[in-house]
Simulated assay, not measured.
Amino acid sequence: MDIAEWWPKLAEDARAWLMANNGDALPSHLVEQITAAGGVVTSDAWWVGESGPNGFFLSDRATDWIEEAANGEHP
């Protein structure tokens, strides 16, 4: 599922955290919310970044998308 599909399904506080902490490792509860909204974090979707000992990261393209969303460039 594309980020544009699961983004509006996130709680407002989750979207706010992603915008305020864009590029940071996602806390596990946020990864769970993305998964619950339909985002498959183990997929090869363009928005999936690296996952490792420091946590789960969104891709650079996804952080750009979130920045655009924060600037009102996405519905």
Rank of each mutant, 00 (worst) to 15 (best):
P27W: 03
W6G: 01
W7E: 06
W6D: 01
R15A: 08
S51F: 10
L30E: 09
A4S: 14
L30M: 10
G23R: 01
M1K: 08
E12N: 09
A11P: 08
I3L: 14
D13T: 12
D64V: 11
S59F: 01
A45Y: 02
N71R: 12
A20Q: 14
D60F: 07
R15N: 06
S28L: 13
S51T: 12
G49N: 02
D60G: 11
E5L: 11
A69I: 07
L30W: 03
P27H: 00
D64G: 07
F57E: 10
P75W: 10
L26E: 07
L26M: 13
G39N: 04
F57N: 12
V41Y: 12
A4C: 07
D64M: 12
K9I: 01
D24E: 13
K9F: 01
E12W: 09
G49F: 02
L18F: 05
L10F: 03
A25L: 04
P75N: 08
S59Y: 08
S59K: 02
S43V: 03
P53R: 12
E12Y: 04
L30H: 03
W17M: 03
G49W: 00
E68Y: 06
D13I: 09
E73W: 09
E73V: 04
S28M: 11
P27Q: 02
W17Q: 07
S28E: 14
W65M: 05
I3H: 05
P53W: 12
H29K: 13
A4V: 03
P8S: 01
E5D: 15
D2A: 10
W47I: 06
K9R: 15
G52H: 02
E32C: 09
I34E: 08
L26Y: 00
E68P: 05
E32W: 08
L26N: 04
W46S: 15
E5C: 00
N71Q: 13
A36S: 14
G55D: 09
F57L: 15
I66R: 02
N54C: 00
D24V: 04
F56D: 15
S51L: 05
G39F: 00
V31E: 11
A25E: 10
A11H: 11
L18D: 08
R15Q: 14
G52Y: 05
I34Y: 05
R61Q: 14
L10E: 04
N22D: 11
D13N: 14
D2R: 12
F57D: 10
F56G: 04
A20T: 08
L10V: 05
W7K: 01
G38M: 05
A25N: 06
A62T: 01
E67P: 00
G72F: 06
P27D: 06
S43K: 04
A11C: 00
I3R: 04
R15V: 09
E67M: 11
H74M: 06
L26T: 01
A62I: 06
S28C: 09
L10D: 07
A36N: 13
G52I: 06
D24K: 08
D2M: 06
D2I: 04
H74P: 02
W6F: 15
W17D: 09
E5M: 09
G39A: 00
D2E: 14
A16P: 05
V48P: 08
W17C: 06
L30D: 07
R15D: 06
A16V: 08
S28W: 10
F56V: 15
